[in-house]
């Protein structure tokens, strides 16, 4: 019977990443990488709860604005009365304007997807630090870390624009169930992006100061990258479930 005596030649045990001593690990994997994957597994449940709530409350708001095109036929309105139609503020028009702005969100989605490409290239830069060909600026980790952070910030800019536009059209977190669940869900995602941008900028600062290189730095950037990509895949789900499907 084989045993799991994989040997870690250089385990960086502990939570600081500066352990120099060869600690034994069972699997030969890094502690921190196991922890981040467990964390990501847990985050799946967090976003599952938020997304479920959004979907459960979809179409239950009693006043507008609504996310998608909304026909003001009496049968569509929750209250099913003329009063209910009036309360929605759409008695005048037959069809109410959808509030979600697909063109703009498509752009921000594209930006976030591309930030993931920048992130893998940044990791590649750290892994190949000092190797021939990687000393050029557009192949190095500094450029791509900065690009990732920049695109993350751009995504946040789009989100700020979207939120402001919604408020101008009369949708706040207090307006209706759609507003509450939409702002909370996308706000949670935005908070994750913000934390990621902060993390990326910290890595960039370290990179500028002393250069990110070596095994431990690869791990540190890898963990940040895993987080970043996860935030990206959450957005892939949100874009489809919340924006595109009615």
């Amino acid at each position: 019977m084989a045993t799991a005596v994989a040997h870690a030649s250089d385990g960086h045990a502990g939570d600081s990443g500066h352990g120099e001593h060869a600690h034994y690990t069972t699997t030969g994997l890094e502690h921190r990488k196991i922890a981040i994957w467990a964390f990501i597994g847990s985050e799946c449940m967090l976003f599952a709860s938020l997304i479920s709530t959004y979907l459960i409350y979809k179409g239950r708001s009693k006043v507008g604005p609504m996310p998608h095109e909304f026909s003001c036929k009496v049968s569509n309105v929750v209250a099913s009365t003329a009063d209910g139609v009036a309360a929605l503020g759409c008695a005048a028009a037959d069809v109410m304007k959808p509030i979600l702005d697909i063109p703009v969100t498509s752009q921000s989605t594209f930006v976030l997807l591309m930030s993931s490409l920048a992130m893998v290239l940044a990791l590649e830069g750290v892994e190949n630090h000092g190797k021939p060909g990687y000393d050029r600026w557009f192949k190095g980790s500094k450029f791509w870390l900065a690009m990732t952070a920049l695109m993350g910030a751009a995504f946040l800019g789009y989100q700020a624009y979207e939120f402001t536009a919604f408020v101008h059209e009369g949708l706040t977190i207090k307006t209706n169930l759609f507003g509450s669940s939409f702002f909370t869900l996308t706000g949670f995602h935005g908070a994750h992006v913000s934390a990621g941008v902060l993390w990326l900028l910290t890595l960039l600062a370290i990179d500028m100061k002393r250069g990110l290189k070596g095994k431990n730095d690869v791990l540190v950037v890898d963990i940040c990258a895993l987080y970043w990509h996860f935030v990206d895949v959450v957005w892939i789900a949100i874009f489809t479930l919340i924006y595109l499907i009615q």
């Binding site: 005596v5 994989a6 040997h7 870690a8 030969g28 990488k33």
Partner: peptide
């Protein structure tokens, strides 16, 4: 305990 897994 193949090398592929020994050093992550």
């Amino acid at each position: 305990p193949a090398p592929a897994h020994a050093t992550a």
